[in-house]
């Protein structure tokens, strides 16, 4: 600010009357009450709940059952916290085992609008029936409206068993 305002002379301002005091107090207090109710209400509605007991690893099957180089759809049940309930849900994943035994597990929904896609053996790609999005065996978008590669589960191999963790958008590939 370049111009410095000179404070008004004591006599220049009208003396605060009782009436202006009343009006100011009414507006001030109602503003305060609105804020004291409104802010906690927004926090209550918008802050996500404290999550409890999540991100558990789920066994989905034996490593030996997974063929090399061909995606297989594997289903498993997992507990999901849904508000005040814990529900057991049927989930599935498209699991790919590479020749060097590396496992990739894709989430079962197309990244476009969430349709269930499938593996087209003849074309050697994942095909979404809704809008013809196409994905490679690595999950990369080959065609169609899909905006990003397939989501992937965290994977872990314990002995001969495959475990899946959270479903994640691959960070290095996300837009």
């Amino acid at each position: 600010m370049d111009s410095v305002e000179t404070p008004p002379e004591p006599g220049a301002m009208p003396p605060p009357t009782r009436r202006t005091f009343y009006v100011a107090a009414i507006y001030g207090i109602w503003g305060l009450i609105t804020a004291a109710l409104g802010l906690p209400a927004l926090i209550y509605l918008l802050v996500p709940p404290r999550m409890r007991r999540q991100n558990e690893w789920v066994e989905v099957g034996k490593m030996a059952q997974i063929p090399i180089g061909t995606p297989v759809e594997m289903t498993f049940r997992r507990m999901r916290v849904d508000g005040w309930k814990v529900v057991s849900e049927q989930n599935s994943a498209w699991v790919v085992k590479s020749p060097n035994n590396q496992i990739t597990a894709f989430g079962p929904q197309c990244t476009h609008l969430g349709c269930a896609y499938h593996w087209d053996e003849a074309k050697n790609e994942f095909v979404c029936p809704c809008h013809n999005s196409l994905f490679s065996i690595e999950g990369k978008v080959l065609g169609g409206p899909a905006p990003r590669p397939l989501d992937q589960y965290e994977t872990k191999v314990q002995g001969a068993t495959l475990l899946l963790g959270r479903l994640q958008t691959p960070p290095e590939q996300s837009a």
């Binding site: 906690p40 209400a41 926090i43 209550y44 802050v47 709940p49 404290r50 409890r52 005040w84």
Partner: peptide
């Protein structure tokens, strides 16, 4: 049954839930 569980959820897991119930 759900009434109790959902109220517990409000009180233990939602920020400001205890305040809302208190009010």
């Amino acid at each position: 049954g759900d009434a109790y569980n959902s109220l517990r959820y409000i009180l233990t897991e939602l920020t400001g839930g205890r305040l809302m119930r208190g009010l």
